[in-house]
Design a protein around this nucleic acid. Structure first.
Length: 411
RNA sequence: GGAGGGGUACCCGAGUUGGCCAAAGGGGGCAGACUGUAAAUCUGCUGGCACUGCCUUCGAAGGUUCGAAUCCUUCCCCCUCCA
Protein backbone atom coordinates (compact mmCIF):
# COMPACT_ATOMS: atom_id res chain seq x y z
CA UNK A 1 0.00 0.00 0.00
CA UNK A 2 1.45 3.35 -0.98
CA UNK A 3 2.08 5.92 1.68
CA UNK A 4 -0.85 8.28 1.95
CA UNK A 5 1.56 11.18 2.04
CA UNK A 6 2.73 10.26 -1.43
CA UNK A 7 -0.83 9.99 -2.60
CA UNK A 8 -1.67 13.43 -1.29
CA UNK A 9 1.47 14.79 -2.83
CA UNK A 10 0.88 13.19 -6.19
CA UNK A 11 -2.67 14.46 -6.38
CA UNK A 12 -1.47 17.94 -5.64
CA UNK A 13 -3.04 18.63 -2.27
CA UNK A 14 0.06 19.52 -0.36
CA UNK A 15 1.40 23.03 -0.23
CA UNK A 16 3.59 23.31 2.87
CA UNK A 17 4.69 20.97 5.61
CA UNK A 18 6.51 21.61 8.84
CA UNK A 19 8.65 18.50 8.51
CA UNK A 20 8.12 16.72 5.25
CA UNK A 21 10.22 13.61 5.90
CA UNK A 22 9.09 13.08 9.48
CA UNK A 23 5.44 13.35 8.55
CA UNK A 24 5.89 10.86 5.77
CA UNK A 25 7.54 8.39 8.13
CA UNK A 26 4.98 8.95 10.82
CA UNK A 27 2.15 8.17 8.43
CA UNK A 28 4.01 5.10 7.31
CA UNK A 29 4.61 3.73 10.79
CA UNK A 30 1.60 4.42 12.90
CA UNK A 31 -2.06 5.20 12.99
CA UNK A 32 -2.07 8.93 13.29
CA UNK A 33 -4.74 11.06 14.85
CA UNK A 34 -4.95 14.34 12.99
CA UNK A 35 -7.28 17.28 12.88
CA UNK A 36 -8.71 19.89 10.59
CA UNK A 37 -10.68 22.82 11.92
CA UNK A 38 -13.81 24.29 10.40
CA UNK A 39 -15.25 27.56 11.54
CA UNK A 40 -19.03 27.62 11.38
CA UNK A 41 -19.42 30.86 9.48
CA UNK A 42 -22.45 29.65 7.51
CA UNK A 43 -25.13 27.03 7.83
CA UNK A 44 -23.59 24.75 5.24
CA UNK A 45 -20.18 23.57 4.13
CA UNK A 46 -19.09 24.75 0.70
CA UNK A 47 -16.74 23.60 -2.00
CA UNK A 48 -13.74 25.15 -0.30
CA UNK A 49 -14.29 22.84 2.64
CA UNK A 50 -14.69 19.91 0.35
CA UNK A 51 -11.01 19.76 -0.55
CA UNK A 52 -10.22 19.35 3.11
CA UNK A 53 -12.88 16.70 3.47
CA UNK A 54 -11.33 14.86 0.54
CA UNK A 55 -8.03 14.83 2.37
CA UNK A 56 -9.73 13.50 5.46
CA UNK A 57 -11.25 10.72 3.41
CA UNK A 58 -7.91 9.83 1.88
CA UNK A 59 -6.39 9.78 5.33
CA UNK A 60 -9.17 7.68 6.82
CA UNK A 61 -8.89 5.20 3.99
CA UNK A 62 -5.23 4.85 4.82
CA UNK A 63 -6.16 3.94 8.38
CA UNK A 64 -5.60 7.21 10.16
CA UNK A 65 -8.04 8.83 12.52
CA UNK A 66 -9.52 12.21 11.61
CA UNK A 67 -10.78 14.74 14.08
CA UNK A 68 -13.19 17.24 12.62
CA UNK A 69 -12.99 20.25 14.85
CA UNK A 70 -15.83 22.71 14.70
CA UNK A 71 -15.09 26.21 15.80
CA UNK A 72 -17.97 26.89 18.11
CA UNK A 73 -15.52 28.88 20.20
CA UNK A 74 -13.19 30.34 17.58
CA UNK A 75 -16.22 31.27 15.52
CA UNK A 76 -17.03 33.76 18.22
CA UNK A 77 -13.77 35.52 17.40
CA UNK A 78 -13.39 35.27 13.64
CA UNK A 79 -10.23 34.33 11.81
CA UNK A 80 -8.54 37.36 10.28
CA UNK A 81 -6.41 35.22 7.92
CA UNK A 82 -6.83 36.22 4.33
CA UNK A 83 -9.34 38.84 5.22
CA UNK A 84 -9.17 42.50 4.51
CA UNK A 85 -11.87 43.48 6.93
CA UNK A 86 -13.56 42.38 10.09
CA UNK A 87 -15.80 39.40 9.70
CA UNK A 88 -19.43 39.85 10.41
CA UNK A 89 -20.00 38.84 13.99
CA UNK A 90 -22.29 35.91 14.48
CA UNK A 91 -24.46 35.34 17.47
CA UNK A 92 -23.97 32.36 19.70
CA UNK A 93 -27.20 30.82 18.47
CA UNK A 94 -26.22 31.16 14.83
CA UNK A 95 -22.91 29.49 15.52
CA UNK A 96 -24.47 26.61 17.38
CA UNK A 97 -26.91 26.19 14.57
CA UNK A 98 -24.16 26.15 12.00
CA UNK A 99 -22.13 23.65 13.97
CA UNK A 100 -25.15 21.43 14.01
CA UNK A 101 -25.48 21.59 10.21
CA UNK A 102 -21.79 20.93 9.73
CA UNK A 103 -21.99 17.83 11.87
CA UNK A 104 -24.81 16.46 9.82
CA UNK A 105 -23.04 17.06 6.55
CA UNK A 106 -19.80 15.58 7.78
CA UNK A 107 -21.27 12.24 8.57
CA UNK A 108 -22.00 11.85 4.86
CA UNK A 109 -18.32 11.78 4.11
CA UNK A 110 -16.45 10.47 7.08
CA UNK A 111 -17.17 7.34 9.04
CA UNK A 112 -17.52 8.24 12.69
CA UNK A 113 -18.43 4.77 13.90
CA UNK A 114 -16.43 3.09 16.57
CA UNK A 115 -14.06 5.90 17.15
CA UNK A 116 -12.79 5.77 13.58
CA UNK A 117 -13.14 9.51 13.52
CA UNK A 118 -14.08 12.13 16.05
CA UNK A 119 -16.04 15.33 16.01
CA UNK A 120 -15.33 17.97 18.57
CA UNK A 121 -16.40 21.51 19.24
CA UNK A 122 -13.79 23.84 20.60
CA UNK A 123 -16.42 25.80 22.48
CA UNK A 124 -16.18 22.91 24.94
CA UNK A 125 -12.82 24.11 26.15
CA UNK A 126 -12.59 27.68 24.92
CA UNK A 127 -15.88 29.03 26.16
CA UNK A 128 -15.07 28.87 29.84
CA UNK A 129 -11.44 29.78 29.86
CA UNK A 130 -10.35 32.03 32.65
CA UNK A 131 -8.75 35.11 31.16
CA UNK A 132 -5.99 35.63 33.70
CA UNK A 133 -5.04 31.98 33.73
CA UNK A 134 -5.09 31.80 29.99
CA UNK A 135 -2.82 34.72 29.35
CA UNK A 136 -0.45 33.56 32.06
CA UNK A 137 -0.26 29.95 30.95
CA UNK A 138 -0.62 30.29 27.22
CA UNK A 139 -0.19 33.94 26.33
CA UNK A 140 3.31 33.98 27.75
CA UNK A 141 4.48 31.73 24.94
CA UNK A 142 3.47 34.13 22.23
CA UNK A 143 5.72 36.89 21.07
CA UNK A 144 3.81 39.84 19.74
CA UNK A 145 6.80 40.85 17.67
CA UNK A 146 6.76 37.53 15.92
CA UNK A 147 3.01 37.45 15.51
CA UNK A 148 3.12 40.79 13.80
CA UNK A 149 5.41 39.42 11.16
CA UNK A 150 3.03 36.54 10.41
CA UNK A 151 1.67 36.54 6.91
CA UNK A 152 -1.92 36.34 8.04
CA UNK A 153 -1.74 39.67 9.86
CA UNK A 154 0.27 41.56 7.28
CA UNK A 155 -2.39 43.14 5.17
CA UNK A 156 -4.50 43.70 8.22
CA UNK A 157 -1.81 45.84 9.74
CA UNK A 158 -2.49 48.39 7.04
CA UNK A 159 -6.25 48.09 7.16
CA UNK A 160 -6.67 47.69 10.87
CA UNK A 161 -6.86 44.70 13.13
CA UNK A 162 -8.80 44.49 16.34
CA UNK A 163 -7.44 42.87 19.46
CA UNK A 164 -10.31 40.42 19.27
CA UNK A 165 -9.09 38.99 15.99
CA UNK A 166 -5.48 39.19 17.06
CA UNK A 167 -6.36 36.55 19.64
CA UNK A 168 -7.56 34.09 17.05
CA UNK A 169 -4.11 32.62 16.61
CA UNK A 170 -3.85 31.87 20.33
CA UNK A 171 -7.22 30.16 20.32
CA UNK A 172 -6.35 27.92 17.41
CA UNK A 173 -2.99 27.08 18.90
CA UNK A 174 -4.68 26.20 22.14
CA UNK A 175 -7.01 23.89 20.24
CA UNK A 176 -4.05 21.93 19.01
CA UNK A 177 -2.65 21.66 22.52
CA UNK A 178 -6.00 20.49 23.83
CA UNK A 179 -6.37 17.88 21.11
CA UNK A 180 -2.87 16.67 21.68
CA UNK A 181 -3.65 16.17 25.34
CA UNK A 182 -7.03 14.59 24.80
CA UNK A 183 -6.46 12.42 21.76
CA UNK A 184 -2.74 12.47 21.22
CA UNK A 185 -3.37 14.34 18.02
CA UNK A 186 -0.07 14.84 16.25
CA UNK A 187 -0.92 16.45 12.97
CA UNK A 188 -2.91 19.48 12.04
CA UNK A 189 -3.91 20.10 8.49
CA UNK A 190 -5.71 22.96 6.83
CA UNK A 191 -5.88 25.29 3.89
CA UNK A 192 -2.73 27.18 3.15
CA UNK A 193 -4.24 30.32 4.62
CA UNK A 194 -4.00 28.52 7.93
CA UNK A 195 -0.23 28.12 7.81
CA UNK A 196 0.50 30.82 10.38
CA UNK A 197 -2.07 29.48 12.79
CA UNK A 198 -0.87 25.93 12.33
CA UNK A 199 2.79 26.56 12.94
CA UNK A 200 2.01 28.60 15.98
CA UNK A 201 0.02 25.64 17.31
CA UNK A 202 2.91 23.31 16.59
CA UNK A 203 5.18 25.66 18.51
CA UNK A 204 2.83 25.85 21.44
CA UNK A 205 2.53 22.09 21.82
CA UNK A 206 6.27 21.78 21.63
CA UNK A 207 6.81 24.36 24.31
CA UNK A 208 4.13 23.21 26.71
CA UNK A 209 4.29 19.47 26.21
CA UNK A 210 7.83 19.15 24.90
CA UNK A 211 6.37 17.04 22.14
CA UNK A 212 6.95 17.02 18.43
CA UNK A 213 3.79 17.52 16.48
CA UNK A 214 3.35 18.44 12.86
CA UNK A 215 1.50 20.67 10.48
CA UNK A 216 0.58 20.41 6.85
CA UNK A 217 -1.32 22.72 4.53
CA UNK A 218 -3.13 22.15 1.24
CA UNK A 219 -3.43 24.25 -1.80
CA UNK A 220 -6.50 26.36 -1.82
CA UNK A 221 -8.86 25.50 -4.60
CA UNK A 222 -8.19 28.19 -7.14
CA UNK A 223 -8.60 28.60 -10.85
CA UNK A 224 -5.58 28.65 -13.11
CA UNK A 225 -5.79 32.42 -12.84
CA UNK A 226 -5.48 32.26 -9.09
CA UNK A 227 -9.03 33.19 -8.30
CA UNK A 228 -10.81 31.34 -5.55
CA UNK A 229 -12.98 28.58 -6.90
CA UNK A 230 -16.41 27.67 -5.74
CA UNK A 231 -17.72 31.19 -5.76
CA UNK A 232 -20.21 32.59 -8.18
CA UNK A 233 -21.98 35.90 -8.41
CA UNK A 234 -24.81 34.37 -6.44
CA UNK A 235 -22.48 33.24 -3.69
CA UNK A 236 -20.62 30.10 -2.80
CA UNK A 237 -21.24 26.66 -4.19
CA UNK A 238 -22.72 24.88 -1.20
CA UNK A 239 -22.74 21.22 -0.39
CA UNK A 240 -26.28 21.48 0.92
CA UNK A 241 -28.74 20.59 -1.83
CA UNK A 242 -31.18 23.13 -0.44
CA UNK A 243 -28.73 25.92 -1.01
CA UNK A 244 -27.18 24.74 -4.27
CA UNK A 245 -29.25 22.23 -6.16
CA UNK A 246 -27.49 19.10 -7.40
CA UNK A 247 -28.21 20.28 -10.93
CA UNK A 248 -26.53 23.65 -10.38
CA UNK A 249 -23.73 21.90 -8.56
CA UNK A 250 -23.22 19.59 -11.51
CA UNK A 251 -23.33 22.49 -13.95
CA UNK A 252 -20.69 24.40 -12.01
CA UNK A 253 -18.15 21.66 -12.63
CA UNK A 254 -19.38 21.01 -16.14
CA UNK A 255 -18.58 24.64 -16.94
CA UNK A 256 -15.16 25.10 -15.43
CA UNK A 257 -12.32 26.34 -17.59
CA UNK A 258 -10.14 23.93 -19.53
CA UNK A 259 -6.91 24.48 -17.61
CA UNK A 260 -8.61 23.68 -14.30
CA UNK A 261 -9.94 20.28 -15.28
CA UNK A 262 -6.98 18.16 -14.33
CA UNK A 263 -6.44 19.87 -11.02
CA UNK A 264 -10.08 19.48 -10.05
CA UNK A 265 -10.15 15.83 -11.04
CA UNK A 266 -7.13 15.18 -8.86
CA UNK A 267 -8.38 17.09 -5.87
CA UNK A 268 -12.09 16.41 -5.95
CA UNK A 269 -12.45 12.86 -7.19
CA UNK A 270 -10.96 9.49 -6.36
CA UNK A 271 -10.23 8.60 -9.97
CA UNK A 272 -6.81 6.99 -10.40
CA UNK A 273 -4.12 9.44 -11.34
CA UNK A 274 -3.42 7.89 -14.75
CA UNK A 275 -7.03 8.49 -15.61
CA UNK A 276 -6.88 12.02 -14.24
CA UNK A 277 -3.84 12.76 -16.36
CA UNK A 278 -5.37 11.22 -19.44
CA UNK A 279 -8.56 13.24 -19.08
CA UNK A 280 -6.70 16.42 -18.27
CA UNK A 281 -4.63 16.09 -21.41
CA UNK A 282 -7.62 15.98 -23.74
CA UNK A 283 -7.76 18.86 -26.18
CA UNK A 284 -10.40 21.06 -27.74
CA UNK A 285 -13.87 19.59 -27.82
CA UNK A 286 -12.57 16.35 -26.39
CA UNK A 287 -12.05 17.93 -23.03
CA UNK A 288 -15.79 18.21 -22.62
CA UNK A 289 -15.77 14.51 -21.86
CA UNK A 290 -13.42 15.17 -19.00
CA UNK A 291 -15.67 17.91 -17.70
CA UNK A 292 -18.66 15.61 -17.77
CA UNK A 293 -16.78 13.00 -15.83
CA UNK A 294 -15.58 15.56 -13.35
CA UNK A 295 -19.07 16.93 -12.82
CA UNK A 296 -20.53 13.46 -12.47
CA UNK A 297 -17.89 12.25 -10.05
CA UNK A 298 -17.97 15.25 -7.77
CA UNK A 299 -21.73 15.36 -7.73
CA UNK A 300 -21.79 11.67 -6.86
CA UNK A 301 -19.48 12.18 -3.93
CA UNK A 302 -21.48 15.07 -2.58
CA UNK A 303 -25.06 14.26 -3.47
CA UNK A 304 -24.99 10.57 -4.25
CA UNK A 305 -25.08 8.62 -7.47
CA UNK A 306 -28.79 9.00 -7.98
CA UNK A 307 -28.73 12.77 -7.92
CA UNK A 308 -25.64 12.83 -10.09
CA UNK A 309 -27.34 10.74 -12.73
CA UNK A 310 -30.40 12.92 -12.63
CA UNK A 311 -28.32 16.04 -13.03
CA UNK A 312 -26.36 14.53 -15.86
CA UNK A 313 -29.44 13.40 -17.71
CA UNK A 314 -31.07 16.76 -17.26
CA UNK A 315 -28.00 18.48 -18.64
CA UNK A 316 -27.76 16.15 -21.58
CA UNK A 317 -31.41 16.63 -22.31
CA UNK A 318 -31.13 20.38 -22.31
CA UNK A 319 -27.89 20.73 -24.16
CA UNK A 320 -28.24 17.77 -26.44
CA UNK A 321 -31.22 16.85 -28.53
CA UNK A 322 -32.57 14.12 -26.38
CA UNK A 323 -35.96 15.01 -25.03
CA UNK A 324 -36.18 13.33 -21.73
CA UNK A 325 -37.77 13.85 -18.41
CA UNK A 326 -35.51 16.21 -16.58
CA UNK A 327 -36.63 16.28 -13.00
CA UNK A 328 -33.34 17.66 -11.82
CA UNK A 329 -33.78 21.03 -13.46
CA UNK A 330 -34.68 23.76 -11.02
CA UNK A 331 -38.44 23.95 -10.99
CA UNK A 332 -41.12 26.28 -9.75
CA UNK A 333 -44.60 24.95 -9.19
CA UNK A 334 -47.43 27.40 -9.64
CA UNK A 335 -51.15 27.11 -9.25
CA UNK A 336 -53.24 26.50 -12.28
CA UNK A 337 -55.54 29.38 -11.44
CA UNK A 338 -52.76 31.85 -12.11
CA UNK A 339 -52.69 30.94 -15.74
CA UNK A 340 -56.41 30.85 -16.25
CA UNK A 341 -56.41 34.53 -17.07
CA UNK A 342 -52.80 34.58 -18.06
CA UNK A 343 -49.70 35.91 -16.38
CA UNK A 344 -47.22 38.24 -18.01
CA UNK A 345 -43.72 37.11 -18.76
CA UNK A 346 -42.02 39.55 -16.38
CA UNK A 347 -44.08 38.39 -13.45
CA UNK A 348 -43.42 34.79 -14.30
CA UNK A 349 -39.68 35.38 -14.49
CA UNK A 350 -39.78 37.08 -11.13
CA UNK A 351 -41.71 34.20 -9.58
CA UNK A 352 -39.10 31.72 -10.73
CA UNK A 353 -36.30 33.85 -9.39
CA UNK A 354 -34.64 34.15 -12.77
CA UNK A 355 -34.73 37.92 -12.50
CA UNK A 356 -34.71 40.20 -9.51
CA UNK A 357 -36.56 43.14 -11.01
CA UNK A 358 -38.77 43.87 -13.96
CA UNK A 359 -36.11 46.20 -15.25
CA UNK A 360 -33.69 43.31 -15.47
CA UNK A 361 -36.32 41.28 -17.26
CA UNK A 362 -36.91 44.02 -19.81
CA UNK A 363 -33.23 44.29 -20.45
CA UNK A 364 -32.87 40.57 -20.95
CA UNK A 365 -35.78 40.42 -23.34
CA UNK A 366 -34.51 43.43 -25.23
CA UNK A 367 -31.14 41.75 -25.64
CA UNK A 368 -32.70 38.50 -26.67
CA UNK A 369 -31.71 36.56 -23.60
CA UNK A 370 -35.04 35.05 -22.63
CA UNK A 371 -36.55 31.96 -24.18
CA UNK A 372 -39.89 30.34 -23.59
CA UNK A 373 -40.04 26.74 -24.73
CA UNK A 374 -36.99 27.44 -26.86
CA UNK A 375 -38.56 30.39 -28.60
CA UNK A 376 -37.11 33.81 -28.14
CA UNK A 377 -39.36 36.15 -26.20
CA UNK A 378 -39.64 39.51 -27.96
CA UNK A 379 -42.44 41.18 -26.09
CA UNK A 380 -42.27 42.58 -22.55
CA UNK A 381 -45.98 42.07 -22.11
CA UNK A 382 -46.27 38.57 -23.47
CA UNK A 383 -49.13 36.89 -21.66
CA UNK A 384 -48.65 33.29 -20.71
CA UNK A 385 -51.65 31.06 -20.44
CA UNK A 386 -52.23 27.36 -20.20
CA UNK A 387 -51.68 27.19 -23.96
CA UNK A 388 -47.96 27.61 -23.41
CA UNK A 389 -47.78 24.44 -21.38
CA UNK A 390 -46.90 21.09 -22.80
CA UNK A 391 -47.75 18.23 -20.48
CA UNK A 392 -48.30 20.74 -17.71
CA UNK A 393 -44.76 21.94 -18.12
CA UNK A 394 -43.13 24.99 -19.52
CA UNK A 395 -39.44 25.66 -20.00
CA UNK A 396 -37.86 29.04 -19.43
CA UNK A 397 -34.32 29.81 -20.34
CA UNK A 398 -32.15 32.75 -19.44
CA UNK A 399 -29.12 33.17 -21.62
CA UNK A 400 -27.51 30.08 -22.97
CA UNK A 401 -27.46 27.83 -19.99
CA UNK A 402 -29.75 28.86 -17.21
CA UNK A 403 -32.83 26.71 -17.44
CA UNK A 404 -35.87 26.83 -15.23
CA UNK A 405 -38.98 24.79 -15.51
CA UNK A 406 -42.49 25.75 -14.47
CA UNK A 407 -45.04 23.16 -13.53
CA UNK A 408 -48.71 23.46 -12.82
CA UNK A 409 -50.44 22.41 -9.70
CA UNK A 410 -54.16 21.76 -9.71
CA UNK A 411 -55.78 23.91 -7.07
C1' G B 1 -9.19 62.74 25.57
C1' G B 2 -6.56 66.34 21.62
C1' A B 3 -5.37 67.40 16.22
C1' G B 4 -6.31 66.15 11.27
C1' G B 5 -8.60 63.10 7.16
C1' G B 6 -12.72 60.38 5.64
C1' G B 7 -17.83 57.71 5.00
C1' U B 8 -20.69 57.97 -2.73
C1' A B 9 -24.34 52.51 -6.28
C1' C B 10 -22.10 44.92 -5.81
C1' C B 11 -16.61 46.52 -5.03
C1' C B 12 -12.82 50.32 -5.99
C1' G B 13 -13.36 55.27 -6.90
C1' A B 14 -14.44 60.65 -9.33
C1' G B 15 -17.67 64.46 -8.05
C1' U B 16 -18.10 69.10 -2.46
C1' U B 17 -17.36 77.58 -6.47
C1' G B 18 -25.43 74.29 -4.82
C1' G B 19 -28.92 73.16 -10.53
C1' C B 20 -26.31 70.29 -16.88
C1' C B 21 -26.08 64.20 -10.99
C1' A B 22 -29.57 58.16 -11.03
C1' A B 23 -24.20 60.46 -10.11
C1' A B 24 -17.54 59.97 -14.44
C1' G B 25 -14.02 55.91 -14.80
C1' G B 26 -12.47 50.95 -13.65
C1' G B 27 -13.50 46.07 -11.74
C1' G B 28 -17.16 42.52 -11.18
C1' G B 29 -21.77 40.72 -13.03
C1' C B 30 -25.62 39.77 -16.83
C1' A B 31 -26.91 39.43 -22.00
C1' G B 32 -25.56 39.31 -27.44
C1' A B 33 -21.80 37.73 -31.39
C1' C B 34 -17.96 33.98 -32.02
C1' U B 35 -17.30 28.88 -29.84
C1' G B 36 -16.88 23.34 -27.35
C1' U B 37 -22.46 24.16 -22.00
C1' A B 38 -14.51 26.36 -22.33
C1' A B 39 -11.08 30.52 -22.62
C1' A B 40 -9.76 34.96 -25.17
C1' U B 41 -11.95 38.87 -28.01
C1' C B 42 -15.74 42.36 -29.57
C1' U B 43 -20.80 44.76 -28.52
C1' G B 44 -24.77 46.21 -25.26
C1' C B 45 -26.69 46.61 -20.37
C1' U B 46 -25.91 47.09 -15.07
C1' G B 47 -31.14 51.54 -8.54
C1' G B 48 -36.75 50.74 -8.71
C1' C B 49 -41.31 51.43 -11.25
C1' A B 50 -47.09 52.08 -14.54
C1' C B 51 -39.72 53.44 -18.32
C1' U B 52 -39.61 59.92 -23.81
C1' G B 53 -42.14 60.30 -17.25
C1' C B 54 -42.12 59.31 -12.01
C1' C B 55 -40.02 57.41 -7.27
C1' U B 56 -35.97 56.25 -3.91
C1' U B 57 -30.49 56.65 -3.27
C1' C B 58 -24.43 59.57 -2.09
C1' G B 59 -23.14 57.21 6.85
C1' A B 60 -28.06 58.89 10.09
C1' A B 61 -31.45 62.67 11.49
C1' G B 62 -32.78 67.60 11.04
C1' G B 63 -32.14 72.66 8.68
C1' U B 64 -31.08 76.64 4.79
C1' U B 65 -32.87 77.02 -0.44
C1' C B 66 -37.27 77.47 -5.91
C1' G B 67 -33.41 73.48 -5.97
C1' A B 68 -28.29 69.83 -1.91
C1' A B 69 -23.98 64.05 -2.82
C1' U B 70 -22.38 69.28 -2.64
C1' C B 71 -23.89 74.64 2.44
C1' C B 72 -25.28 74.57 8.13
C1' U B 73 -26.39 71.73 12.93
C1' U B 74 -26.37 67.35 15.82
C1' C B 75 -25.24 62.28 16.04
C1' C B 76 -22.91 57.46 14.47
C1' C B 77 -18.77 54.93 12.30
C1' C B 78 -13.68 54.45 10.16
C1' C B 79 -8.49 55.96 9.44
C1' U B 80 -3.75 58.71 10.68
C1' C B 81 -0.85 61.30 14.32
C1' C B 82 -0.41 62.74 19.62
C1' A B 83 -1.58 60.85 24.92
Amino acid sequence: MPNVYDILKERGYIEQATHEEEIRELLEQEKVTFYIGFDPTANSLHVGHFVQIMVMMHMQKAGHRPIALFGGGTGMIGDPSGRTDLRKMLTKEQIENNVHSFKKQFSNFINFDQDKAIMVNNADWLANLNYIEFIRDIGKFFSVNRMLTAECFKNRLEKGLSFLEFNYMLMQSYDYLELYKRYHCKLQMGGNDQWSNIISGVDLVRRVEKANVYGLTFKLLTTSEGKKMGKTESGAIWLDSEKTSPYDFYQYWRNIEDPDVENCLALLTFLPMEEVKRLGALQDQQINQAKEILAYEVTTLVHGQKEAEKAQKAAQALFGDITEDSTAIPTTILEKAKFATGIDILTLLTETGLISSNGEGRRLIQQGGIYLNDEKVEDFFLMITLDSFVDDKLMLRKGKKVYHQVKIKEN
